[in-house]
């Protein structure tokens, strides 16, 4: 396995209007690794994925994918680059008017001139890899949440991408589906020699399968390390996050004026 970097992120800033979402992120992601990006809701994890995919432009800094600075590419070059990326959306985002088979075949039909017989074989191989070859004729509304996520995974590996980004792949799944998806991410990454970025806040499941973890809080990298380092970390934020503690650096209470003042008890004991 080569240790060459597939993605390099340097000094990345991003703001919506005047609200800063990401503030000076630096990351490197090696080929063939599964990398988790963790952080609370609204910490800018999904924004980071969108910056890597080039659907939004950074305020400053850059994302380099396979040696190319993503936001400097023109539309055609960006679309060419995106064929090397796959993305698994939170709830799968399957095309609801197409069957499972046609969903997986979608990119092959759009981007290649392969004969239909070859597309059929390829689609069945991708579906077999996620264990859903038997579900090829079903429509997306006939699938359970976990199955839909697996079909979406098969769809995202349709053109054998170099990178797959998973946006909260574990949300809303039962424990069995959860470990099925987790193991699939690991197995497919190893078997196809891809790189995977998993954006998640499911600590326990992701620590089982990833090689490296970044924690994002308030737009900066709060901590990073291997799963072992993360589990043993005594840094207050990491400890609170990994063990799911209610109070800590991330406070339980939203900032407010004093409780006594709110209840008009200021002078009660005076």
């Amino acid at each position: 396995m080569t240790s060459e970097n597939l993605i390099e992120i340097s000094g990345l800033n991003f703001s919506y209007d005047t609200r800063a979402i990401l503030k000076g992120i630096d990351m490197t992601m090696q080929r063939g690794k599964v990398i988790a990006i963790m952080g609370g809701s609204g910490s800018g994890k999904t924004t980071l994925l969108r910056l890597i995919g080039g659907t939004i432009q950074p305020t400053s800094g850059y994302v380099k994918f396979a040696g190319k600075v993503v936001h400097e590419l023109d539309r055609d070059a960006l679309f060419k680059l995106r064929r090397k990326m796959g993305m698994l959306f939170q709830f799968g985002a399957l095309f609801t008017d197409l069957s499972v088979f046609d969903n997986v075949a979608f990119q092959m039909r759009e981007h290649t001139n392969l004969p239909e017989s070859m597309i059929r074989d390829l689609v069945l191989m991708k579906l077999h890899a996620v264990g859903l070859r038997g579900a090829q004729h079903l429509m997306p509304n006939e699938l359970s949440g976990g199955m839909a996520r697996r079909v979406a995974l098969a769809r995202s590996i349709a053109l054998d991408p170099m990178l797959i980004m998973y946006d909260e792949p574990f949300t809303g799944l039962d424990p069995i589906s959860l470990s099925v998806i987790g193991n699939l991410i690991r197995r497919l990454t190893d078997a196809l020699g891809m790189t995977s970025i998993v954006v998640t806040h499911d600590v326990q499941e992701s620590l089982k399968i990833v090689d490296y973890v970044y924690f994002i809080a308030d737009g900066v990298i709060a901590a990073e390390g291997t799963p072992k380092e993360v589990r043993e970390s005594v840094a207050p934020f990491v400890h609170q996050f990994v063990h799911g503690e209610e109070d800590g650096p991330v406070p339980f209470h939203y900032p407010a004026q004093s409780y006594r003042k709110d209840l008009n008890l200021e002078n009660a004991l005076a």
């Binding site: 659907t55 060419k80 993305m87 985002a93 399957l94 095309f95 979608f106």
Partner: peptide, 12 residues
């Protein structure tokens, strides 16, 4: 349901 975003990410 992010189908349009997914399509964009598939370079379509």
């Amino acid at each position: 349901t992010e189908q349009l975003a997914a399509m964009g990410m598939m370079a379509v």
